[in-house]
Design a protein around this nucleic acid. Sequence first.
DNA 1: ACCTGAACACCGTTCAAGT
DNA 2: ACCTGAACACCGTTCAAGT
Lengths: 201, 201
Amino acid sequence: MARPHKPILSRDLIVGTALELTDRTGRFTVPELAHRLGVSVSSLYHHVGGRADIVEGIRGRLAATLTLPLGLTWQEAVIHWATAYRDSFAAHPAAIPMLVSQTVTDPGTLARYDELAEVLHTQAGLDTEELIVAITMLDNLCLGAALDLGAPSDVWAADHRESALTRAVTATSRESCSAAAFDRQLDLIVNDLARRAMPVA
Amino acid sequence: MARPHKPILSRDLIVGTALELTDRTGRFTVPELAHRLGVSVSSLYHHVGGRADIVEGIRGRLAATLTLPLGLTWQEAVIHWATAYRDSFAAHPAAIPMLVSQTVTDPGTLARYDELAEVLHTQAGLDTEELIVAITMLDNLCLGAALDLGAPSDVWAADHRESALTRAVTATSRESCSAAAFDRQLDLIVNDLARRAMPVA
DNA sequence: ACCTGAACACCGTTCAAGT
DNA sequence: ACCTGAACACCGTTCAAGT
């Protein structure tokens, strides 16, 4: 088989399989990916710029959920955006380190940031300075929460010492605490923004 | 030369050189590291468990600054801890992706978390549940801020569209905004904790 | 246009060998 | 104990070749 009549590969298929592989095994490798697709390694390079491009494709998939529905107040929009961000990244924990080590170039992802900025500007009346600080805060929060939820930074899970605190901590659910911390921090941020917002209606 | 009278390598030297290499070139590789040290690759494995162990050594170096001075109020301690965390990670941006992709095992780092927990427990009177949420929030914040400061997640630097916001944003200093967002968020967290604290004095 | 095999320049790790 | 060279099983990417 040299060239099939109907292409068997596509950027979308490659990205999807890479994400699947990452979820299942914690990583993906170009040879593994090719094997999984029943194809030779070099075939992939006809549809994709390389490994980094595949990672960027994964980013695009995850960021797709950040689209804002119409008719939300800016507060609701912020909460929707941040929650979707955290959720979709946390659903693929093993992908986070890959995403974090690489500059964001996916146009869809960038557009999602723009949309949030638009809402904060036109509906909450934040000026440029405030806008950037706000988005930075939200970005920080979501990234941190997703990392904390998914990545292997199980800081307090280790039985490293005789700390009463550490032992108590081990008992509690890691996920629920992370979620609680996220919710509370998001709430703090929204309130802080509300205090600074210039109502435009 | 087979075995020198005085060892030329040590875990500390290896870790230090790896960090230096990372700062200068954005990454470190075992062969590069060996070359830089004027030594054969396999020599490193007499002093270090492997690449992951070197990364853990780097984590230990950076976490060393998290030690809390005596005589601080718990609020001051939180601010000191978080600021030192953010600062020392942000000073080595290229190291962050490596640190984030790997489980924390460095004992020193784990001890620094314990110390903060101790302060929050005994001085702020937080119960177990509150304690974990608090530390998770702080951990999230610092990690997110460090990532945002150092990692190549220059989200809004890309000239991807005709967004007035995006262009305005490009003008402003990335660092100062990140710092402002961090300071404000840290302030929010401390105040939130103060509201929940049970004064013990 | 799309798949292939072979080749290239890398990785991290191990291990018998030397002193 | 500590350094070495050689070997191993991997990576990601390229490129001439086939249809």
